[in-house]
Simulated scan of single mutants.
Amino acid sequence: MKKNLLSIIILALLVVNIAMTGFMLLSVMTTNSQTAKLVSDIAVALELEASGGAGGGFALEPSEPAGVNEIATFGFVGNQDRLTINLKPGSDGKSHMMVVEVVFSMNMGNADYATYGSSESLASMRDLVKSIVTETLADYSMEELQQKEVSQEARSKIVEKVQELFNSNFIYDVNFSSVIYQ
Rank of each mutant, 00 (worst) to 15 (best):
F74A: 11
V77H: 01
Q80L: 11
Q80S: 15
D81N: 15
L83F: 06
L83A: 07
T84A: 14
I85K: 06
I85G: 05
N86W: 01
N86I: 12
L87T: 11
K88G: 02
G90Q: 04
G90V: 12
S91A: 13
S91I: 13
S91W: 02
K94D: 04
K94A: 14
S95H: 08
S95F: 11
H96L: 00
M97Y: 12
M97L: 15
M97D: 12
M97G: 11
M98Y: 05
V99C: 00
V100G: 08
V100Q: 03
V100W: 04
V102P: 00
V103Q: 10
F104L: 13
S105N: 09
M108W: 02
M108K: 15
G109M: 04
A111H: 06
D112A: 07
Y113S: 04
Y113W: 13
A114Q: 12
T115K: 14
Y116S: 06
S118Y: 06
S118N: 09
S119M: 05
E120S: 15
S121M: 07
S121V: 03
L122K: 06
A123I: 00
S124E: 15
R126W: 01
L128G: 13
K130A: 15
K130S: 15
V133Y: 05
T134M: 01
E135W: 00
T136V: 15
T136E: 10
T136G: 03
L137F: 07
L137Q: 11
A138F: 01
A138K: 07
D139G: 13
Y140S: 10
S141R: 05
S141P: 00
S141G: 10
M142C: 05
E143K: 08
E144N: 01
E144C: 04
E144W: 06
L145A: 07
K148Y: 06
V150W: 04
S151T: 12
S151L: 12
Q152H: 03
E153F: 07
K157L: 11
E160F: 06
E160H: 08
K161F: 02
Q163K: 12
L165W: 03
L165V: 12
L165S: 06
F166G: 04
S168K: 08
F170A: 09
F170Y: 12
I171M: 10
V174I: 14
N175P: 00
